[in-house]
């Protein structure tokens, strides 16, 4: 129960369940569309001391993006590389089933690789009001004028650890630990209801 108003988007939804797909908040064309994205393979790359720049560059070459050791998301075909800390990257891939194996081949002994495909839920948020919604949870400046496409941030959103990046003009991705899926979805519905929000079913 978030509140008791007749317009509570979370009314009747158990707090310990992922809310069902559907339309939430004001009716009409939804201002925000939320889905859980299909990029099922994820691995953490942690460069060994002194290899941050080299690992970043190799990842950029192999998976796309500028290959920088900074909070940035680089996009390749079917893959994304996101900087989450110095020398630390999350690699997301749509197709590489043995992502750790591929990464080991690319990086040799320069980095430790850890499979994280099941550790996260990847939310895809689209719509012009996404920055306004995220501003209700994230203490980071996500104004599109200062947070261009490709910028990334690892922070807290509504007290939930998250890595987020801007994937397009009005497209955003938010990576949240799997155990928080229900709570994070509740936050999205509560904060996005005033813009109208469509939650799409699991792909």
């Amino acid at each position: 129960m978030a509140d008791r108003s007749p317009h509570d988007p979370l009314a009747g939804i158990a707090f310990d369940r992922v809310p069902p797909a559907g339309a939430y908040g004001v009716t009409g064309e939804p201002g925000i569309v939320v889905s859980t994205a299909e990029e099922p393979f994820i691995a953490l790359v942690a460069a060994r001391n002194g290899f941050g720049a080299s690992v970043a560059e190799r990842l950029g070459r192999a998976f796309g993006g500028p290959g920088l050791d900074r909070p940035h998301a680089g996009f390749g075909s079917g893959s994304t590389v996101v900087g989450i800390g110095p020398g630390r990257f999350l690699v997301l891939s749509r197709a590489e089933a043995d992502l750790p194996g591929t990464l080991r081949a690319v990086l040799g002994t320069e980095a430790a690789i850890t499979g994280q495909s099941d550790a996260f839920v990847l939310f895809d948020l689209s719509g012009a009001r996404v920055p306004d919604l995220l501003a209700k949870g994230a203490p980071v400046d996500l104004d599109p004028r200062v947070f261009p496409v490709g910028d990334a941030a690892t922070t807290l959103v509504a007290h939930i650890g998250a890595t987020l990046w801007r994937s397009g003009e009005t497209g955003w991705r938010v990576l949240v630990a799997r155990s928080f899926e229900a709570s994070f979805t509740r936050f999205l519905l509560g904060a996005g209801a005033e813009y109208g929000l469509r939650l799409e079913g699991r792909g």
Partner: peptide, 28 residues
């Protein structure tokens, strides 16, 4: 308090078997 009141006071973490346990009649 904002959004964080009632059961949303703070986020909860659910185990991978949460739904299974609920179906088994678990008290949490």
């Amino acid at each position: 308090a904002g959004h964080h009141r009632g059961k949303d006071f703070r986020p909860v973490r659910l185990t991978p078997t949460h739904e299974w346990a609920r179906a088994q009649g678990a008290v949490f």
